[in-house]
């Protein structure tokens, strides 16, 4: 502050007429605010821009150097899906943890003391961002399919079925929910991001190692290992048992952290 404006207080404070009987803050407004919070910092904006950049780079690289059978719509969609599944949950993690890391929770929860509503709004906001990212994913895949087939002089392969598309979307939401659950449980950016990356990058190989040593895990691990249960969603057909495994593993990796985390988040002292 270079110059202090001491005359400011001599002006009468502008006041608002007729707000003496306030109405509760509606959920739509909270979701709007939470979406903005994901976009209005450099970190948040870059994470989301990186999704578009990665999608573009993947499509471009495969279109130029890929095999002919790799340049179909379904193949592009799933290829773009991998980096998105890595980045989107990081957006979800930061949406929750930055309130504590940056201590903006002090203002957020002073304005909305019912903390559960804020967390719900954050959840809805991350899903909304994921839906937008899904649209980008499909658009990039379609563009890539069109351009690559024209470039190669082959017929474009519009081979993505509705079922495959919905399963890809479900996969995105599950990955998002894992990140969100970890964030609610841990409430600190770096540890929550590490936990999420550990889940994505280390858990599958760890689980594979255990399966090699313990036959029981090899046979039943999918009931508890969410990364394993998620991996079957990319397969052509999913059995009822595999859906059930996604459910139980989801309870362990999403339901449990969310439940424990929420219980604590609703009571913890905001400093």
């Amino acid at each position: 502050m270079t110059a202090v404006d001491t005359t400011a207080s001599e002006r009468p404070a502008p006041t608002l007429a007729g707000n003496r009987r306030p109405a509760p803050v509606p959920m739509t407004r909270l979701v709007d605010v939470e979406v903005r919070k994901m976009l209005d910092t450099r970190a948040g904006a870059w994470l989301l821009v990186s999704i578009a950049l990665i999608a573009g780079a993947v499509v471009g690289a495969v279109a130029v150097w890929g095999r002919d059978d790799e340049v179909g719509f379904a193949s592009f969609t799933s290829m773009i899906g991998f980096p998105m599944q890595l980045v989107l949950p990081m957006v979800a993690v930061l949406a929750v943890t930055s309130e504590w890391n940056q201590r903006s929770a002090l203002t957020t929860f002073a304005l909305v003391p019912r903390r559960g509503r804020v967390v719900l709004a954050k959840g809805v906001a991350t899903v909304a961002v994921a839906v937008a990212a899904g649209v980008v994913q499909l658009a990039a895949a379609a563009l890539g399919t069109f351009a690559a087939s024209a470039f190669r002089g082959i017929d474009p392969a519009w081979d993505l079925t509705l079922e495959q598309a919905s399963r890809a979307a479900l996969l995105d939401v599950v990955a998002l929910a894992v990140g969100f659950g970890f964030a609610v449980l841990i409430r600190a950016s770096a540890p929550a991001l590490v936990a999420y990356l550990g889940f994505v990058l280390i858990l599958p190989s760890l689980s594979g190692m255990i399966a090699g040593l313990a036959p029981w895990w090899a046979e039943h691990g999918s009931w508890l290992d969410l990364s394993l249960a998620m991996s079957v969603l990319g397969a052509p057909a999913v059995t009822d048992e595999q859906w059930a495994q996604l459910g139980t593993a989801g309870l362990v990796w999403i339901g449990l952290p969310l439940a424990v985390g929420m219980r604590r988040l609703l009571r913890v002292e905001i400093r």
Binding site: P24, S104, T107, P113
Partner: peptide
Amino acid sequence: YGDLPNPGLEVGVLLDASAQHGGR
């Protein structure tokens, strides 16, 4: 305080000026 429907319109609060998101 937690029962106020829109507390910002009734009570102005400043507990810690440094508790703001530095990136905004």
